[in-house]
């Protein structure tokens, strides 16, 4: 058990990795949620062409393994002339990937709204952006809260993939600690515990938000 002692001694490595993970997850969550919400509009559009393009994007993200996608962004961006550091490449990959998922779950929530709700919006003269922002979006968000929570957990787990492009998030730091100090698995236990705590916190917050949302459904 002296493995855990060593881990504790060098806990700032783990904590640093954990902070990195949290920051990456926060950026990816905000980015993918915002872009996903915007992508929902073309996804639900009446124009076949526009809707098809959006659907292709969403379906692609849902079929592609994230690890391969990370490599694609990492190797691919430079050939487009964009020079990002590993960290930024990783965050970009997470955002692009999860935008597809967020858009799909928001689209499903939108499609499940009672038709009359939106009709009333039209009947009272709401149109365009005003209709979307004031009539459609709030009920969609409230009904989608549990699914958004699940997606957040998925983002936390996907963030670990960034270790392969040497981003200093939690798993990467745990591996570093392990190889540097020859601690067999204590550092990974620490990482697993931290991931667990993070996800359980997200689940708790979502449960709380859900209760708030229920009165408004």
């Amino acid at each position: 058990m002296n493995g855990f002692n060593i881990v504790w001694q060098h806990r700032d490595m783990i904590i640093g990795g954990f902070e990195n993970t949290l920051m990456i997850v926060a950026l990816a969550a905000i980015g993918s949620f915002t872009l996903g919400a915007l992508l929902t509009i073309p996804l639900m559009s009446r124009h076949r062409g526009v809707a098809s393009l959006a659907t292709v994007y969403v379906d692609t993200m849902r079929c592609v393994p994230f690890l391969l996608f990370v490599y694609l962004i990492y190797f691919g961006l430079p050939s487009l002339g964009i020079q990002f550091d590993n960290w930024s490449s990783g965050v970009v990959a997470l955002i692009l990937y999860n935008t597809g998922y967020m858009a799909e779950l928001l689209r499903a929530a939108w499609a499940n709204l009672p038709k009359e709700l939106i009709e009333a919006g039209h009947a009272f003269g709401f149109v365009g952006w005003g209709l979307f922002r004031r009539i459609i979006l709030p009920p969609v968000l409230f009904s989608a809260i549990p699914l958004i929570g699940n997606q957040l957990i998925q983002i936390v787990k996907d963030s670990a993939f960034l270790t392969v492009i040497a981003v200093g998030e939690l798993t990467h730091q745990a591996t570093s600690l392990q190889t540097t100090y020859f601690v067999p698995f204590a550092s990974f236990i620490a990482a697993v515990v931290l991931y667990w705590v993070t996800c359980v916190t997200i689940e708790g917050t979502v449960g709380f938000a859900n209760r708030f949302a229920e009165a408004r459904r």
């Binding site: 709700l117 009333a120 009947a123 009272f124 149109v127 009920p139």
Partner: peptide, 24 residues
Amino acid sequence: TDRDLAAMRTRIGMVFQHFALWPH
């Protein structure tokens, strides 16, 4: 246009069978 249609609709009220209140 959708905008012109919306403007005309503001002059016509509608009460729906299933109420269609905005839940949020």
